[in-house]
Amino acid sequence: MNNTTFKYLRPISPVKACELKDKYGESSRFWAGGTDLLLQWKEDVVCLDYCIDLSFIPDLDYIRKDSDAVSIGALTRVASIETSSELNHSLSIIREAAGELATPQIRNTATIGGNICRAAPSADMAPPLLVLDAEMKFVSASGERWVAMDAFFLDLNQTALEENELLAEIKVPIPPVETASCFLKIGRTVIDIAIVNMAARMTMDDRGILTDVRIAFGAVAPTPLRIKAAEEILLGTDVSTIDDTLVGKVSNKVGDEIKPITDVRGTAEYRREISRVLTKRAIENIIQTLQGRLNS
């Protein structure tokens, strides 16, 4: 059983935070917004004898744009993402996902880093970051390294972060202009954890051939994941020739690839069915945008 109190630590730099983590190991946790952690601790799911609060570390809360990427500090509040003007065009799906995450109260507290590091299968920020090929900056007492978003989630609630590492930044490359994206989420009510969430992103060349296709799903497997077998079907096709049959093929592929479970939010069958529907809707939405651009 957990202790009913914990020691509260407030490091002032990422490295100091990691040193504390080195010192206290598994009995300590990084605290970002605490919206997940507090509940997990109360429910005895995690041990939190030492709470390492990251929120006073300067410069982990930012959204910065340069010529080829938008960088988001791990401690950036979901509410700041929801309203950021830097996240536009095909990056706006990050904003949309933030806008559908929980309630305004939670969004004011929850951080993007916490959402990803918690590694819930349903994490709303995950599918957009997966389809946008985000890169994650890890920091430890001994240095830093970059990990691709695609290699970030390992298993249920498990990430590529080592015990003594923290996530400092999420870098999202700005895709070429001829790109369109889409985020979709289905919950039981407007405010809910996703029964299924997903994002898709496609880039075409100037002849309308799809050169890059990403489809990612949440809440249908132990981790948020890309459905590469479905992406491959679309890769190299001409956007003007994509018809219902092809869309159906991709949707069915998604249905085959995912491994949903039954829980209080929905059954495996329902998740599989709506994953197909969402795939169809996302592709239709994106293709419509891309075809529009091709014709203009």
Binding site: I186, R188, G266, T267, E269, Y270, R272, E273
Partner: peptide, 11 residues
């Protein structure tokens, strides 16, 4: 929604 889809014979 699940009952709706079952009612429609979709799952």
């Amino acid at each position: 929604p699940e009952r709706v889809l079952r009612g429609l014979g979709k799952i």
